[in-house]
Structures are given as C-alpha cells and as structure tokens.
Design a protein around this nucleic acid. Structure first.
Lengths: 260, 260
DNA sequence: CGACACCTTGAAGAGGTTCAAGAAATGTGG
DNA sequence: CCACATTTCTTGAACCTCTTCAAGGTGTCG
C-alpha cells in the first residue's frame, strides 16, 4: 500500500483515519464531521450545537513546514485547532535566545497566549506541513455566550494548558536530564496513543536541538542520552525514528526517587 | 503611626489603601467597593454589572499562615481572588519532591488549575494570613454567560497565566542562576509597584528554599546570590528585607546577553 | 530560655555545558 | 540525478556552574 501524503506522516503506524488531501472547496471545516472533535473544542456538544459550531469554524489554513502560523507580536485574531501536522511554540528573549515552550499535534488548540494582551507572545512554527481550523476569537466569544458547554470546553482547554505548563516547570526545575528526556518521550507516546497511533513507534518531527530547548538541555546532551537509553535497551533510535522497547522502564525513569 | 495588622504587612511602604480588620458582617465581599477591582476579575465592568457581580462573589475566606486554600486532589469548586496576603502554589511528584509554581498576591486569581479536570492539581498555601474572595465556579459560568465583558476578563486572566508560565519556562530552561534571581526580584518589584507599593523596598514573604524551588535552584545558591548582589551594590539584604539599590542594574542582569 | 526553622558560607564533587571534529542526512542547483 | 553545501547528529575531552555536604550563626515562637 502506498500512502499519499496526508500531513500526518510524522507517525509511523497509521491507523484508519487518513484524510485525503483536501480539495479547495473542502477547505471549509466541519466540526460535525471531524474525527478529532472528541479531542478538540467541541467535546461533548450536541448535534445542534455542532451544526452551529460549523458556522464558527469556517476557515482552514495551511502552514508549510518551517512556516509561521503566527509570530510574537502579531495581533491576536483567532485560536487555531490543529487538524493535521505538528507545531512548536517558542518564546524569544531580547538578547536573541529562544526557548521551545511546547509541541502541538492534531486535535490541540493553539494561540491561547494571545487572548490576554490581544497580541501573540510566542512564535508558532510548523514542524511539518500542517492544516489548522481557524476559530475567529470574536466569533468564539459570541458562541460561548450562547453555548454553555462550549464555554466550559474552552475554559477546560485553557486550564489544562496551565496544568501542562506546571508539569514542564516541575520538569525543568526539579529533574535531572535523564528524567526530563524520559518524561518527554512518555508524554509523546501517551498523546499519540490517545489519537489512535502506536505509542511505541513513532517519528520525532523536531530536531535534537528543539527537544533540548524544550527540556532546558543542550542538543549534545539529548543526543548522548538517546544513545544511552538505546544502550540500556530502553529504546531503539534511528535518526528521528523512535521505538520504545520498554515503556515501563521509561516511566520508571521519570519518577525515579532520588532519595530526597 | 502604629498600624493594625492588615494582612498586607509583607510590604514595607504602605500606601493609603489599608483595610481595617473585617468584622464578621463585613466578610461579605463587594466588588463594587473593592480597591482591587481594577486588578481583578471585574476590570472595566459597568456599575450595573459590578452590582450583579456582588451577588456572585458573596463569600470571603481567611487562610492562616501555613494553611491550605486548597490541596492537590481536592474537588474543584471555586476560583479565589486574593484580597490580602500572599500565597504560593506547589506541585508534588509521586516521589515526594515538590516545586513552587508561583507566588500570588492581592488582586490575583488563583485556582485556575482546577477547571480542566474538576480537581485541583496543586497545593495553594498561604505564606501569611490571607483573605480571599470565593468565586463559586458554577455561578461564575452562569455570570459569564450574561456578561460578555466578564467572560473576556476571565479568558484574559487565564491567558495571562499561560504567558506568565511561558516566562518561567524560559527562565528555568535558558537562564543561569544570576539571571533567574534577578528576574524574580524585578518581577516582584513590578507587581508591587502596580499595586501602589514601593518597587524598591519590600519584604520577602517566602523562604530562600521556596525561592530556590521556584527558580530551580538550591536555597544555598539563592542565599549566595543575594549576598553577591549585595556585595555588588545592586541590592541591600537584611533577612527578608530587600532594598533594591540599582533597579536598572538588576534589569540588565535579567537580559544580559551571554554571546549566543 | 530552649528548640526549631531559617540562613550564611566554605570546600569538594558531579552533572551538564562547551568546544571540537567528523559522520550522516537533507536540500539545492545545475 | 548527481555534486556540493548545509544542516543535523554523534561522540570525546576539558571545563565550569551549581549542587552537595558540612558547620556555625541568627531569628523566632511557644
């Protein structure tokens, strides 16, 4: 079987949810038909509400690999739901250093950083050709006024982002390099599993440097640790291809009590 | 002038916004009269809306120093607006290590972590006797349905928390110890200034260990750095009392380009 | 006043960074 | 489609920042 490019080939074992390349007239999104709706903003909405939502999420946008969905300083206009692809968010300092603050995959909502100040405060870069639903924010505010469930969903999404970041802070503040990288791999694995992909075999869409930036490590350290995990028989690495041999061992690494 | 205890004596130079000890019958909150409303949830609400809000935020709660406002695992019931006092939030790992994820002062909303999963995912501990307005979440959802401005405010507050955490991630992931501590002091200074307090002279309500936990450093490192900043003439330290001698130098420390 | 928590400072040690060099993969243009 | 440039990755060795361990000092509260 030869697969056409679907924008989801950052995954190895593709399940039965391939999307064909959308034709232009299909670029209109439709939450009611979307296979991701149980992961996304419309979680648990009724049929009627879903139909209403289709009028809100009416545009899609493609971002080529390496392209920006939005940039630090851009006026905030919309939230974006990732349909296919993979993205990273980065914050930049005055002196030019930057830090990856998150990796985002299908079904996730990005752009939440812009609501507070009406400007985006990070860059959102596609790590592979990506396809997003554009959720115009002013319209969304109107919709949430009428759909309490939608409002709740939005609040939950934002709250979960806050909790996710708590986890990253814990990682960066209290764990050593092994634990950070192990936690990163386990997290990726779990998110892929939730989307129906293999939790043990996948392709990293980001470079070692990007992983390092996210984890507060240098790319050399990431590279060395991947090699060591492989030597220990926990994972198998081949360039960007990862196969987790012993998921339990990896999970143990993330919670290894270092006697304090 | 001898001041009665107002729950705000973590600050040195008190401006003209002292609250008397609330008598029991005064424990009913009133956003419409609150001097903090320009920092808090009701920012920019009309008079009518403010009056409506008074029915939402109808309870106050006191938390003694060292007490918990809520704990990891508690059912999520409400958000809390800090009226007086000072708090820290901490997340805990399975192996018992914990990390401070934030320090919170008057006018700030805490508890946002609980919305996503209906359970709180961190501890919220009072670092001094504190007084909070209880915003029952179900009621809040009803109110935001009717008050678009209130909904927007809530979204902005959550978005800003996300952005704040981006900043902490940057701090923990990309900066050395000097830069972290300098950034911490500058941040405290700015938040105090916003509330009408002296930005250059204040009392730390947290221990060196808590600062260290927040910044991903040991308490010894924090202690050493405070001493060094003092030796460099940037600040003056006397136990928990801080006087910033050279705010610009401190700000420079936070953005010192280390040539990469 | 004594117990306890908190803070300071020193010295040794370790984990991760930096610098460096080469290999492998990827992309580009003719 | 191949050659070349560029990016990415791996691995080693020296170094450095921050941690760990330790001991003594200071402040606070019952």
């Amino acid at each position: 079987m030869t697969l056409r490019y679907t924008g989801m080939n950052f995954l190895v074992n593709r399940p039965a949810m391939n999307h064909p390349i959308p034709k232009l007239q299909e670029l209109r999104a439709a939450c009611s038909n979307c296979s991701l709706r149980e992961l996304c903003l419309p979680i648990g909405l009724s049929i009627e509400d879903l139909n209403a939502l289709d009028n809100l999420v009416s545009v899609r946008k493609r971002v080529k690999r390496g392209g920006f969905l939005f940039r630090d300083g851009d006026d905030f206009q919309a939230l974006y739901a990732i349909r296919t692809g993979f993205m990273k968010s980065t914050v930049i300092t005055e002196d030019g250093r930057d830090q990856v603050t998150g990796f985002h995959m299908l079904g996730e909502i990005v752009g939440l950083d812009g609501i507070g100040s009406s400007k985006h405060s990070c860059d959102m870069v596609a790590l592979e050709d990506s396809d997003v639903c554009v959720i115009h924010y002013e319209n969304l505010e109107d919709f949430t006024q009428r759909l309490p469930q939608l409002q709740l969903n939005l609040h939950k999404i934002m709250s979960r982002e806050i909790v996710r970041e708590h986890g990253v802070m814990l990682l960066l503040g209290s764990r050593d390099a092994d634990e950070r990288l192990a936690a990163f791999l386990v997290n990726l694995s779990q998110r892929l599993k939730l989307r129906g992909y293999s939790p043990t075999e996948f392709v990293l869409r980001m470079t070692r440097a990007e992983i390092g930036s996210y984890l507060g490590l240098t790319f050399e350290t990431v590279s060395r640790l991947l090699s060591r995990f492989q030597a220990d028989g926990v994972i198998e690495v081949n360039q960007k291809n990862i196969r987790i041999q012993n998921l339990e061992a990896l999970k143990d690494l993330t919670r290894r009590a270092s006697c304090n």
